[in-house]
Design a protein around this nucleic acid. Structure first.
Lengths: 223, 223
DNA sequence: CATAAGAACTGACCAACAGTCATCTTTGTG
DNA sequence: CACAAAGATGACTGTTGGTCAGTTCTTATG
């Protein structure tokens, strides 16, 4: 009989249900003020039960953003497959990244709570971390693909290896978003629309790897 | 008599002593695992006493990094006064920023714990926040000065107002450092030396605001 | 110097939280 | 049905940030 399979499926579903409840709880009460107890109540379970599915709060949080990452991955894949020139593609990819950060308010807040290195170290169910790691890698690969394309078509001219450059790009963008989303900077610094601000950061970076006096990006770029 | 003055001085000294003890405790036991109790013990005071000088742990942390910021400010001021061309100056300024981050390990870790907006909101002793805010502002002004100089001498060509651009620059660099210092990214992403990596991010950004095919920065830049 | 006013300090105490585990409940099997 | 295994529970533990009634030290005054 498929009892083993059914159990496995049920386990997976419950896991997903817990994540969904966690998300709901976070939206209701905010990230900082949502305890495991609250999440449990939202999921109509006891607190202890959560720990049968996640070895710690951190792992639960990571489970949340791992799921989000897969959504992002799909979106980026579409950008990659489009027929834009590489620099436009790259811009588009990072704008997608930013759009994603708007719809997943918690993603970048959770990120600040997580010490990735520490989670990798512990003997958590590898599953969660693998998924997270995998998603991260796939996304990076997409960026790499786009940059490589730009190099091949002569749009980009790099001053370091492709790998290094995409790490640098990703770091700068992710970092900017993290800072903004977590109010790590006096609010009066930020006079521009968040969206416009980030777009200009991306453009600055792209110009930094573009060959020649430049491309579409110098002109008005929105719309 | 100068009793009032002496009291005030003593109060200030004690405050400073607490901050020093906090720093020692953090270095001894790490940021995450240092409680107020520990700091108190290190300072040879009772926990309650700390709260006579800082309204919360957050404010104490902010006090720590506010002091650090003043050191940074001084260093940046030297760069500003140097006679380098603007792009080199800007590079130098951000490298100084990074060097600072190495010597003040906690600065960027503390930053992720602080919700600046929240601290501003509360009725904490305005003093701490003012100092923090002030230091931030001064630093920003230095960057502004350098960028403006670059514009005036034709080295830079901006695609937005000077104010917007310096915010963007600062955001990207600060963000990159925050991400690295807090392990917010799988460690195997980072293959480069941290220092080299950040330098290249900065260079990418600077190229992004530079006019023409470019300057010193394209060549080997260290040393 | 004696003493009162009050500033500075203390540590037992509280509430909130992540995480544990002995116990109970449900499910599958022979 | 009996009984074992898996699943779920919530009272409990240990730790933390923060409070506050009470103690000790400092200063002003008669």
């Amino acid at each position: 009989m498929g009892i083993r399979e059914r159990k496995e499926r049920e386990r997976f579903q419950r896991r997903a249900a817990i994540l969904a409840s966690a998300r709901t709880a976070f939206i209701k009460h905010g990230l900082a003020t949502t305890s495991m107890e609250r999440i449990a109540k939202e999921a109509e379970l006891a607190k202890g039960t959560l720990y049968l599915y996640f070895s710690s709060k951190d792992e639960l949080l990571m489970g949340l953003i791992a799921a989000d990452l897969e959504v992002l991955h799909e979106r980026l894949h579409n950008v990659k497959s489009s027929s834009l020139p590489a620099d436009r593609k790259l811009l588009q990819a990072f704008l997608e990244f930013h759009a994603f950060s708007r719809e997943n308010q918690f993603f970048f807040q959770v990120m600040t709570q997580l010490n990735v290195a520490q989670i990798v170290g512990g003997e958590h169910s590898q599953e969660t971390f693998d998924k997270f790691s995998q998603a991260n890698q796939t996304i990076l690969d997409i960026v790499k693909h786009i940059v490589q394309e730009g190099v091949d078509t002569g749009v980009f001219q790099l001053h370091a290896s492709v790998h290094d450059v995409i790490i640098q790009l990703t770091l700068a963008i992710k970092g900017s978003i993290v800072i903004i989303k977590n109010n790590m900077v006096p609010s009066f610094w930020i006079r521009q629309e968040e969206c416009e601000l980030l777009e200009q950061v991306v453009q600055m970076l792209i110009r930094g790897i573009s060959r020649g006096p430049s491309t579409v990006i110098l002109k008005e770029s929105s719309q």
